[in-house]
């Protein structure tokens, strides 16, 4: 026993020449990585520093480097700044982003299942057309007719005007097609058919449980993308019924120099995404990396 263990240890020690291993991080690499992390985190930290200071301190030279004690007061001020409608903006963004996310995931899993595991005429052509349109920034290019459409429907200033155009998400269909192909073996679908299951039943009982990880990645990305949407809400919504992003843009436009106020609003707007990141960070990294490897 001991000899074998010893030999094993020896061999391992041999396979890893301590100094000249090209895969080990050098001190320089470590320092560079730490510096990168510092650069990544600093603007966020700075946001908190200013958000917790008074308006006067925010423009001090040299700049304050530590958080102060005014965060609560600043938050109250953001909520009390009536013309920014910040609370409405946060609520609207939550409603819009969640609605879009749920719908996109539903639409994409349905279509992904059909494209990956069902046979029908025109399948390749239709899937190809989705891939092509993914290259077109539709919401930006078609902004004039989309706006006209909303005017004609008398939907300007309403939430459905910001929700509906973003339900169209070719990337989602593509991702779920890829994921279903990989996660649901054809044999499984056919076995279910032989057992007499209808297509919808297969979707519900076979496909959905298997593609859940793919759904999670799509959901997170869709939520982040829509939480961040700026151009379209800026045009189609009114300042008294904004999303959180346009509310902050309004704050910066109207209270130009009150950085403590603006930064507090900004920090609050990032909070939901940060919570998602802290809870699901590991899955996000995993999902991103898995997706990249498949590509």
């Amino acid at each position: 026993m001991t000899t074998i263990a010893h030999a094993g240890r020896q061999r391992r020690a041999h396979a890893r020449p301590s100094r000249r291993d090209p895969f080990a991080a050098t001190p320089l690499t470590k320092a560079a990585l730490l510096f990168t992390i510092f650069l990544s985190v600093f603007p966020l930290y700075w946001m908190v520093v200013i958000a917790s200071r008074t308006t006067a301190q925010a423009v001090d030279v040299p700049p304050p480097l530590l958080p102060g004690g005014n965060l609560g007061e600043n938050i109250a001020r953001v909520f009390a700044t009536e013309d920014a409608h910040f609370v409405t903006g946060m609520t609207n963004s939550l409603i819009v982003s969640s609605t879009v996310t749920l719908s996109v995931v539903a639409i994409s899993t349905l279509a992904g299942f059909a494209f990956a595991r069902l046979r029908f005429r025109g399948r390749k052509l239709l899937l190809g057309s989705i891939l092509l349109t993914m290259m077109v920034p539709i919401q930006q290019m078609g902004i004039v007719p989309l706006y006209q459409l909303m005017v004609n429907l008398e939907w300007t200033g309403t939430l459905q005007a910001v929700i509906l155009p973003f339900l169209l998400n070719g990337f989602g269909v593509f991702l779920m097609t890829q994921y279903t192909e990989q996660a649901v073996p054809m044999e499984l679908v056919e076995a279910a058919r032989v057992d007499g299951a209808s297509t919808m039943r297969i979707y519900w009982n076979v496909v959905l449980p298997a593609v859940r990880p793919g759904m999670a990645v799509l959901a997170l990305q869709t939520f982040m993308l829509n939480w961040n949407e700026f151009m379209w809400p800026l045009i189609v919504l009114t300042p008294d019924n904004p999303t959180v992003q346009t509310s902050i843009a309004f704050l910066t436009g109207q209270h130009t120099t009150d950085y403590a106020l603006i930064f507090t609003g900004t920090a609050l707007s990032v909070l939901p995404l940060l919570v998602v990141f802290i809870v699901f960070g590991r899955q996000i990294v995993g999902g991103l990396m898995e997706g990249a490897v498949k590509a």
């Binding site: 961040n228 959180v244 992003q245 900004t266 995404l273 940060l274 998602v276 990141f277």
Partner: peptide, 9 residues
């Protein structure tokens, strides 16, 4: 981390 902050932020 920068990815999860909003563009506006």
């Amino acid at each position: 981390i920068p990815l999860v902050t909003s563009v506006v932020a």
